[in-house]
Design a protein around this nucleic acid. Structure first.
Lengths: 351, 351
DNA sequence: CTGAAAGCGCTTACAG
DNA sequence: CTGAAAGCGCTTACAG
């Protein structure tokens, strides 16, 4: 037995075999639980999970060599939204002496195949999912290793067992639309986000509800589907503005989209806000910088990110969070891109 | 066999068995070389080491299965520039199976006090400094631990012993200014970046040089200092446009600044580009989205970030990089914010 | 749902 | 110096 023996640790970390003996099951079964595979009764799974937890399986030993990490998985890492969230997470995590590993999803809603392997290897304190979700297997893998996770503005139907932090998208969209209605607009178009994203659906739904409350019929041709990108705002904005009865206001489901609508309007010689009012959603920095400055719905990204870090650190200390889902209030920010509706008849004949 | 199978990779990473076959030795021998054990002839060892290197065999770092990490330290993590760089680094690093730890500097040019401690603890494969620098002590700490580092667009005087990747700022500024001169502008203002940042100095210097080449005197009141922010573009832009002889063109040292100049012009009722031409620097996405679309100097952020990762991974394998400093070419991108100089006296006539 | 068994990638003591 | 063989920790297809 040479000095190379790596088992210098006081207890040595548990092996599957030991755990199997303790739980009175086979090694295979422990392995399944550890990797979130199916084919284990709920009871057995619970017993083994408790054991894994108890024996700190594969858990980094706390001590001088412990550099705590938070994993952040982002959909569209280069988007302004993700950027502002990352910056906020970084600031708060740094205060707590926790470093931040950032990964992109390669622009899909689910992580790369080898992402989870890296995470399990790194043994982070927790995981924050920014506008993306995890397959169930991976959720189970994280849970069995006692790595908590939180969703930030989840795109899919939030699962009740995962704490998630969102924004009040429906009421934001309602407020945006109401603002336009109060300005006298009746012909209001919308560029939506992708159908499979909850936030897009919520925004569309809030838009509809506000119109219905005001007894304004919802015209199908005024509803245009798109992604949240600039190019979608441009394409769908152009489509809306080329309609026989063109809308006098457009609600874009994101600020970036709204800038696309700006470009469409510019190209077609439609003046904002005198001939067309535009409302965005998010209140990114670019909303303030646009010309004219964009009226939009403020999503409190920084506060949301801070919540996410707090909840995660609570969970890390095995403190249950106070909620499973919270939606932070959105607020209407009126700037220069919205104005009273132009008079239909005169405007139509001149154009 | 479900779709979850993680072994879907076409090539997978090399196994000892494969390497053994290639080297025509036993698995045991490869294992010995891999772990620095004695009992292998120098010749065999060299052959196998070459192979390991060649096949990018995943060397296990000290500690139980260590996942490789790149550290990225960013000045102003939420800036568009940093964002685009981070996204590019992430993409490339992920391809190589390396994760990315991102830290902000709390908006100073040097890292937080406890940053280096975390880095040494995490034992990253290397460090990328995005628009920031390290105190000498920390450089020495990294060197002594064999952790290579690279500067991306360094703000300070580049030290010859640290590989750094920049952009051709001087020639970019020269090209921007020349473009304005060719359009007939003579009264050209500039909003610069902070004096202590090399890139700001280089851009100002290129501006001056172009004017001097064209024998246009440089008026001191046309040179306004600022940070690279929107607010500086606004403040200094307003100052320039309020001058008795107001400039007909403004060169902003960053795109974000240029949008600030847009806002100043809007506030003062100065039309772009008919009454005022504006050129930016960076070619961020927002440059394309601005109204009018911004003429700017393209800095190849993505290519620069990729270079940084490549150099770092080269250094990791103890291969010296091909250079200590490289500046990637910038290019003039003409869009809609620049036009021929207005005739001083009849500037109201243009439609 | 459960576990025996085959197997994988790796390490190591040991015979040649 | 070299490699056959035993073994370790783990995963997984499959029989029950």
């Amino acid at each position: 037995m040479s000095a190379e023996m790596p088992q210098g640790e006081p207890e040595g970390r548990a092996t599957l075999a030991e755990l199997a003996a303790l739980a009175d099951v086979s090694i295979s079964t422990v392995s399944k639980v550890l990797n979130g595979r199916a084919g284990v009764s709920e009871e057995t799974r619970a017993r083994i999970e408790a054991l894994l937890n108890d024996r700190q399986y594969n858990r980094r030993s706390p001590g001088p060599n412990h550099a705590p990490l938070i994993e952040v998985l982002c959909f569209e890492i280069a988007s302004s939204w993700a950027t502002e969230a990352i910056a906020a997470i970084d600031r708060l995590a740094r205060e707590r002496g926790v470093a931040m590993v950032v990964s992109g999803t390669n622009d899909r809603q689910k992580p790369d195949l080898d992402w989870i392997a890296g995470v399990l290897n790194r043994r982070p304190v927790g995981v924050i999912l920014v506008v993306c979700n995890l397959p169930d297997v991976q959720k189970r893998q994280l849970r069995s290793r006692n790595i908590p996770f939180v969703m930030l503005d989840p795109a899919g139907q939030p699962t009740p067992d995962v704490p998630s932090i969102g924004s009040a998208d429906w009421s934001g969209a309602y407020a945006a639309t109401q603002h336009l209605i109060e300005l006298g607009h009746r012909d209001i178009g919308i560029v939506t986000g992708p159908e499979d994203m909850m936030i897009a659906t919520a925004r569309l739904s809030g838009f509809r509800a506000a119109l219905e409350s005001a007894r304004i019929p919802v015209r199908p041709e005024y509803i245009r589907r798109g992604e949240f990108h600039h190019s979608d705002g441009l394409t769908e904005g152009r489509a809306l503005l080329s309609l026989p009865t063109r809308p006098t206001a457009i609600f874009a489901s994101s600020d970036v989209q709204a800038l696309g609508v700006y470009e469409a309007a510019r190209a077609l010689g439609v003046a904002i806000p005198s001939e067309l009012s535009v409302v965005g959603f998010d209140d990114l920095k670019i909303a303030r910088w646009a010309g004219p400055a964009l009226t939009t719905i403020r999503v409190p990204i920084v506060e949301m990110a801070e919540q996410a870090v707090h909840v995660l650190l609570d969970l890390t200390q095995n403190r249950a969070p106070a909620f499973s889902r919270v939606e932070m209030a959105t607020t209407l920010v009126v700037r220069d891109s919205t104005d009273v509706a132009p008079r239909r008849t005169t405007e139509m004949f001149r154009a």
